[in-house]
């Protein structure tokens, strides 16, 4: 059998996500008031930008065969540290940002190191890290938010370049960066190799341990960038920030075609997944649907996405 058998699943894998995006878009364009307004579209993009950056990081981990539930906790802690340095210690914006990013990468590396050295499953490592960091975020100020960031810093979250919000620009730069890394560099290929077949990757001469640590560090990097935008946008460091991120990120990644078992998925798909979730959030609010029902919709969508992923894996075997 040399020919590829094209099943509807293959077509779904290729186009389904775009059809889904179009359907959601058309639905809300018709059903939700003001959905199509210029202001709302920009609003959606701004809403998804911070989230999308984290999802890009989480997707890299998932393509590499791992998982990261600690991104929300990382964002909260990095956010608190930024606030603490800039407001309580009057540190300059640039050093504060550099330290924040450094700490994000450090948390990520820690996840990777524990997973590699202690052979603990990624879900346990990052779940533990999530709990630890959520606690640490509250411990920094005893639970109080930090407000009053330097004005220049809030520009990162609230400002515009031309008509486009700064977060959106950062998001676009980030996904282009992510896309190039995953598709064009040998590093990206190594990540796909690692997630696709770890033993074959090792035999192909790839230092799988070092690569694993690197991918988690990259996710930490993404989380810290998102934390910077978040603090800038709300002009506050909130210890409870990001708590819904771990699962929202997986929802978007799976929706975008990232395989739970690793090695498959595209950054372009992930972007679409992120935008679909953004449109859902925005459109349902515009329609006045209550937030509990929004959660029901998200849950069903994740289930559908993963079920299709599993179905595909099953047919693969036979």
């Amino acid at each position: 059998m040399e020919q590829t058998k094209k099943t509807w699943i293959d077509y779904y894998k290729k186009f389904g996500i775009y059809i889904f995006l179009a359907a959601v878009f058309i639905f809300f364009a018709a059903a939700a008031p003001n959905f199509l307004s210029y202001k709302n579209i920009i609003n959606i993009l701004r809403q998804v930008s911070m989230f999308g950056i984290v999802v890009t990081g989480v997707s890299a981990v998932m393509i590499g065969g791992g998982m990261d539930l600690s991104v929300g906790g990382q964002m909260a802690v990095v956010g608190m540290i930024l606030g603490y340095f800039m407001v309580n210690m009057n540190m300059g914006i640039v050093p504060a940002i550099v330290i924040g990013i450094f700490i994000g990468c450090l948390f990520g590396s820690l996840n990777g190191l524990v997973a590699v050295k202690l052979h603990v499953a990624p879900i346990i490592v990052t779940l533990s890290m999530m709990l630890v960091l959520q606690g640490v975020a509250y411990l920094i100020t005893g639970g109080y938010p930090i407000t009053g960031m330097p004005e220049a810093f809030t520009m990162i979250g609230q400002g515009y370049i031309g008509v486009i919000p700064v977060p959106v620009i950062i998001f676009v730069i980030f996904i282009i960066f992510g896309w190039i890394v995953m598709n064009k560099t040998y590093l990206g290929r190594h990540i796909y190799a690692l997630g696709g077949n770890k033993e074959a990757a090792r035999l192909a001469g790839i230092n799988v341990d070092r690569l694993t640590v690197f991918i988690y560090a990259f996710t930490g990097f993404a989380a810290s960038i998102a934390a910077i935008i978040m603090v800038g946008r709300t002009n506050a460091s909130q210890p409870g920030a990001g708590s819904s991120y771990p699962f929202d990120c997986m929802t978007a990644a799976c929706l975008g075609g990232i395989s739970i078992s690793g090695g498959e998925g595209k950054i372009s798909g992930v972007v679409v997944g992120v935008i679909i979730l953004g449109i859902l959030d925005n459109g349902l609010v515009l329609m006045g649907v209550n937030s509990n029902f929004q959660s029901v919709v998200k849950g069903l969508i994740l289930l559908a996405a993963v079920a299709i992923d599993c179905y595909q894996v099953k047919t693969k075997k036979s």
Partner: peptide, 9 residues
């Protein structure tokens, strides 16, 4: 299959 090739690639 387990060690030689990357099947999805």
């Amino acid at each position: 299959k387990a060690q030689g090739v990357f099947l999805p690639m």
